[in-house]
């Protein structure tokens, strides 16, 4: 097995809720609560979950765009949570991010050339001429033309802008790219183009991806492994095929049963979850899923299940799969 590029260890991100005149601390929104996983070099890890389950926050906490409340992030042998701002800034050269909204993630007052050149400038790569050449080269790599360099973001379609966003992430030759719902804002036809582009780039440039999405089909298409999050916790993580064929966690089963099947005659059993996703500021005790779980037991209300490996390449956090003591 290839080497571990990123190790996330008990990562937590709580957003404090403050109230009143003196900003009294009255509670926390537990956006990410004790998430651990490993990421191997060259693979794509998909992270799925409903909106608000903390998948984007996880991505941002890894990059320290949101300062983690607790936990460690080990990237390529470097302990990211211990770095000061300036050291972290330099490490960001190796971890780049692709954002969800291609309309909001590019500065509207800068030309494409300026947008793409900036990562090179801030990391002091190359001289002016080399930088300009590299901008043109990468524009071609992501499927745009070099003459697009002089245009402004508003002159592009959503798909083209997302390509610019991807090109920006590639400029510094990063090792890891965290893609935060990179295709959610795009039309389905464009989604496929961008996904294929990302896969091609991964092969050509030996990239490692964390691919955050809420669309299970998209994640299946691109990921080697998939993690499922619910209410700030990672409830199941497995190799892509294992997860899709044999989901273990009741939440994953319900999610997968909701994926439409392109066959009008096919009758399937739909697992409909009752109730809403609870508030992350006041999550249920024990297993956070017990309020909606069809298999909930007494134990689930009290004890938080730990993520444990049940078979090779498949871990789940659920009391149903615990080895009998």
């Amino acid at each position: 097995m290839s080497k571990v590029l990123l190790k996330v260890d008990h990562l937590k991100k709580y957003f404090p809720i403050r109230q009143g005149m003196f900003a009294r601390h009255v509670g926390d929104v537990k956006a990410v609560d004790d998430v651990s996983f490993e990421l191997y070099e060259g693979e794509t890890l998909g992270i799925v979950g409903e909106s608000g389950c903390g998948k984007s926050t996880t991505g941002r906490a890894i990059m320290r765009l949101h300062e983690p409340t607790e936990g460690k992030v080990l990237f390529d042998g470097i302990e990211l949570t211990d770095l000061n701002n300036e050291q972290m800034r330099k490490v960001r050269r190796d971890i780049q991010m692709v954002f969800q909204d291609p309309y909001a993630s590019l500065n509207p007052r800068h030309t494409v050339e300026k947008i793409l050149e900036e990562p090179l400038i801030v990391h002091g790569i190359g001289n002016a001429k080399e930088r300009k050449n590299k901008v043109r080269e990468y524009l071609e790599i992501v499927g745009l033309s070099s003459y697009h360099a002089k245009r402004y973001p508003h002159q592009f379609s959503g798909g083209q802008r997302q390509r610019i966003g991807i090109a920006r992430a590639l400029m510094t030759n990063p090792k890891l790219i965290i893609a935060d719902e990179p295709v959610s804002a795009l039309d389905v036809s464009i989604q496929a183009q961008v996904l294929n582009l990302m896969q091609r780039l991964q092969d050509d440039l030996k990239l490692t991806y964390i691919f955050i999405a809420h669309d299970l089909g998209v994640v299946r298409h691109i990921s080697d492994r998939v993690g499922v999050m619910y209410l700030g916790r990672l409830v199941e993580i497995a190799e892509s095929e294992l997860l899709y064929h044999e989901p273990l966690h009741p939440y994953t089963q319900a999610l997968l049963s909701a994926v439409p099947v392109p066959d009008p005659v096919f009758e399937r059993e739909q697992l409909l979850l009752k109730g809403d996703i609870p508030s992350p500021s006041n999550p249920p005790t024990g297993c956070t899923f017990h309020t909606r779980c069809p298999h909930a037991m007494e134990k689930c209300k009290q004890v938080i299940p730990m993520l444990q490996q049940v078979k090779s390449g498949h871990s789940v956090a659920c009391h149903l799969y615990e080895a009998p003591q």
Binding site: M63, L65, R92, Q96, Q100, S105, P108
Partner: peptide, 10 residues
């Protein structure tokens, strides 16, 4: 988001 992006770039 482009400010977050600027930060993410370093």
């Amino acid at each position: 988001e482009y400010i977050h992006a600027a930060k993410a770039i370093g």
